[in-house]
Amino acid sequence: MHKKKILFIDRDGTIIEECPRTHQIDSIEKVHFLPKVIFFLSKIYKELEFELVMVSNQDGLGTSKFPEQTFWPIHDHIINIMKSEGIQFFSVHIDQTFQHEKKSTRKPGIGMLTSYLTKKYDIEKSFVIGDRFTDILLAYNLGCKSIWIKKDGNRKNEEYFYNGKNLKNIISLITDQWNEIYEYLRFNCSGQSFLQRKTYETNVKINLSVYGYGKNDIKTDIGFFDHLLKQISIHSSMNMNIETIGDLYVDEHHTIEDTAITLGKVFCNSLGNKRGINRYGFFILPMDDCVSTVALDLSGRSDLIWNVEFFREKIGNVPTEMFYHFFKSFSLNAKCNLYIKALGNNEHHKIESIFKCFARSIKMAVKKITFNKISSSKGLL
C-alpha cells in the first residue's frame, strides 16, 4: 500500500501574517498573505505527493473575547482564496481553547490529529510547517519533521531543547521564504528512493531523486558506462548516486546488467503510485552525425523495441551487445514500454545520443501535470 504523506500547516504566521497586538484575525483588513505563499503552496499541492492539513490554535474562539461570527467568515474567505488558486486542504483542525486549559487538542498536543497515526499515513516522511516553537513540538509529538518559518533565520542553541530533549534533528529547514520550502520538499522529499541489490556476482547501491537537478556520483569501474549513466542524470535532471562492485575479472556483463536491474527497480519505487505524472515521454535528439528517437510509457508493463545496429564489438570498454541488454533490463524492472531507434556513423555518438534522448524522455514522462489523478482509464499504472 502506498502511504500518504502529510503537510500539517499552521495558519497565522505561516499562510497569513500574524496580527501582533491581539493575535486575532477578525477583519478582512487584517488578512495579509505571506509573500508568494499561494503560488508555491499551489505548486506543492499540484506537483508533490502531500496531503495538506491545516492545524491552528485560536485562543478562546467562541467566547466573548473571540466570537465565532467574527472568525469563520474571515477564515472561509482565506480558504476560498486558496481554493481559487487550486489549493485544497484535506481537512482543517481548529483548537478553540486557551493555553492555560492545557487541552490535548491544543498544539503541541495531538488530540485533534490521532486519526493520522495509522498505517494509511507515512508520518515519518510528513512535516509540520509553522512559525512557533509549539509547531516544532507538535512535529516531535507526532513523530514527523518540521519546517520552521522564522523571519530572522536564526535561533539560539537553547531553542533546540525542551524538557531536556534535543529537538535539533526535528527541524529540517528554517526559512521565511515559501520558494525555499517548495524547493526543499521537491528535491528532498519527492521521488526519492534507495535500493541495494546484492548477489554473488555484484553489489549495487543506488540513491535516486527523480525530481533533482542532475547531480550525480557514478562508480561502476567501467569508464564508458559511467559516462553514459552520467548522461542519464544530467539530461533527466535526476540526482543519481550509483556504486556497483562487480565481478569484472569475469567480464562486464553482470555489472552492467545488475546496474540496469537495480536502476529500473529504484526508479519504479521512486514514482510510487505514479499519481499526477505525465506518464509518456518522447524525444528526438541529434548529436553530430547521429540522431536518436526514444519513446517510453510508464505503463506498469514492460516491452522494448530496439532498432539500433552497431558495427563495432566494443565502445570504450563496453560490449555493444550490452546496450540492448541494459535497456531491456531497465524496462523489465521499471515496468515501462521503451521504443529506441538510432541512425548514424560514429558509434560513440550513436550510443551517447541514445542515452541522452532516453534521459530527456524520462524527464518528460515523470513531470507532474495534474494532482490526484492517474493518466490511465484503468485508474492504475
Results as ranks from 00 to 15, higher is better:
Ile78Gln: 00
Ile305Ala: 13
Ile234Asn: 02
Lys265Ala: 04
Gly272Ala: 05
Lys328Thr: 10
Ser377His: 05
Thr293Gln: 14
Ile123Gly: 09
Phe358Asn: 07
Leu138Glu: 01
Val294Met: 03
Ser84Leu: 05
Asn179Leu: 12
Phe39Cys: 09
Lys350Tyr: 11
Leu381Asp: 02
Ile374Lys: 03
Ile123Lys: 01
Asn157Phe: 05
Ile218Met: 10
Thr63His: 03
Lys219Thr: 13
Leu304Asn: 06
Ser329Glu: 07
Phe133Ser: 11
Asn333Thr: 07
Ile261Gly: 12
Ile171Trp: 03
Glu159His: 07
Thr244Arg: 02
Ser236His: 04
Asn141Ile: 04
Val266Trp: 08
Gly316Ile: 05
Ile354Trp: 01
Ile277Ala: 06
Trp148Pro: 08
Thr255Lys: 06
Trp72Tyr: 15
Asp251Leu: 10
Tyr213Met: 15
Val366Met: 02
Ser64Thr: 12
Asn337Gln: 06
Asn80Glu: 06
His75Trp: 09
Trp72Phe: 15
Gln99Thr: 14
Asn154Trp: 13
Lys107Tyr: 03
Asn188Trp: 07
Ile351Tyr: 07
Leu41His: 00
Gly212Met: 00
Leu343Trp: 06
Glu321Ala: 14
Pro67Ala: 04
Phe39Lys: 15
Cys19Gln: 15
Lys265Asn: 08
Ile351Arg: 01
Lys43Pro: 01
Ile78His: 01
Tyr249Val: 14
Trp178Arg: 07
Ile206Phe: 10
Ile354Arg: 02
Asn216Met: 11
Glu243Arg: 15
His32Trp: 06
Phe225Leu: 10
Cys189Asp: 06
Thr114Ser: 06
Lys378Pro: 04
Gln192Pro: 05
Glu243Leu: 15
Ile222Thr: 07
Thr63Asp: 08
Ile256Val: 14
Asp226Tyr: 00
Asn241Ser: 12
Gln196Glu: 14
His348Phe: 08
Glu183Asn: 13
Gly60Asn: 09
Lys198Arg: 13
Val308Thr: 00
His235Arg: 01
Cys268Arg: 15
Ile340Gly: 05
Phe40Trp: 15
Arg132Thr: 10
Asn163Ile: 10
Ile174Leu: 05
Ile171His: 03
Ala260Gln: 02
Glu124Asp: 11
Leu34Ala: 05
Gly212Asn: 01
Gly300Ile: 08
Lys3Ile: 11
Ile277His: 02
Asp59Pro: 10
Thr105Met: 00
Ile174His: 06
Val55Met: 00
Asn345Gln: 12
Gly264Arg: 00
Tyr280Ser: 07
Phe127Arg: 05
Leu332Asp: 14
Glu68Asn: 12
